[in-house]
Design a protein around this nucleic acid. Structure first.
Lengths: 162, 162
DNA sequence: AAAAATAGTTGCATTTGTCCACTATTTGCC
DNA sequence: GGCAAATAGTGGACAAATGCAACTATTTTT
């Protein structure tokens, strides 16, 4: 059994040591691959690179007036990183920001026409990309994994109800 | 149906739009969380931050003489990123490098005593971290997800045999 | 012998993430 | 009412990681 093969020169001879049975390894590695693929598909789209932009755009589009801090929780960024992200998207004329009347500390975010257009454009792309990318996993298993990770995610960010 | 809730001020009122059913979203998000947690546990350990170091150390430890380019494939980095990673680990006296006799373009990597020690130290930590982190997922489901992702990963990097 | 492929290195520009301190506003408590 | 603490967002500095492209050295192909 390959537990100490010397000088492997091709990937086929390699076993992954304890990482072989480590879920976090696969999550971390698949993340790299899936993110790269997604970036490639959105190339030049104003929304590319990094985890935040897509989620932010879609979230603001379907939740007009949502606050930066809420989005920050959802994508697990700290407020300063979130602020910069929003700043960037405002410069690109995708979002618009205004101070909340009832909570003058907070802001309400809205999409611009251009932002709405882009949201409509990327929605199907994002969905398709995920399906395509994982197409070598059977539909059923894909759903299984997603179901489990969804629950994990929800617990993690503190989404209790549906 | 929450499809256009205005001004949600807490995360519980938010639905994730199409991302709700997008596997890539969960992979990307869980990646952030699990990586952060892992970094925290390995704080100061010489191996922390970024996906590569741990895998590299363990791989070199259990496959003496392995080449940088093979590791690069496994962790999905390009050669330049891999080179820098190795450089860093050599500076920290974890690895040692020598030109292959048969293939003078290539290098063989070996762990130093310090590297071997660290490998032995982090092996259980990495395993435990993954188990702990995903502990709110039932053992059985954890195994299920891992099994599926493992197969996906193998196909992706071109590991055919076992 | 020339051309192409492979392994690795280096430099550079871009991005990203993190930490910390700072302002403004609201809430809670006395 | 008034003061302290919590919350929302901003801004700066700094360390890393990433990706791209050009470059050397070696091997393989033709």
């Amino acid at each position: 059994m390959p537990k100490m093969m010397p000088k492997p020169t091709t990937i086929e001879h390699v076993d992954l040591d304890v990482l072989e049975d480590t879920l976090s390894f696969y999550i971390r590695t698949m993340n790299i691959a899936v993110s790269r693929d997604l970036d490639a598909r959105l190339d030049g789209c104003d929304v590319a690179r990094g985890t935040g932009k897509i989620t932010t755009l879609l979230l603001v589009d379907s939740h007009p007036g949502i606050r930066p801090s809420v989005i920050a929780q959802i994508i697990m960024k700290d407020r300063s990183a979130m602020g910069r992200l929003i700043e960037q998207m405002i410069e690109h004329d995708l979002l618009r920001r205004q101070t909340s009347a009832s909570e003058r500390r907070a802001q309400e975010l809205y999409v611009t026409p251009k932002g709405a257009e882009l949201a409509a454009m990327i929605r199907p792309i994002v969905t398709k990309q995920s399906k395509d990318f994982f197409s070598f996993i059977a539909e059923e298993e894909q759903a299984q994994v997603m179901d489990i990770l969804r629950r994990a995610y929800r617990k993690m960010v503190g989404m209790t109800g549906g």
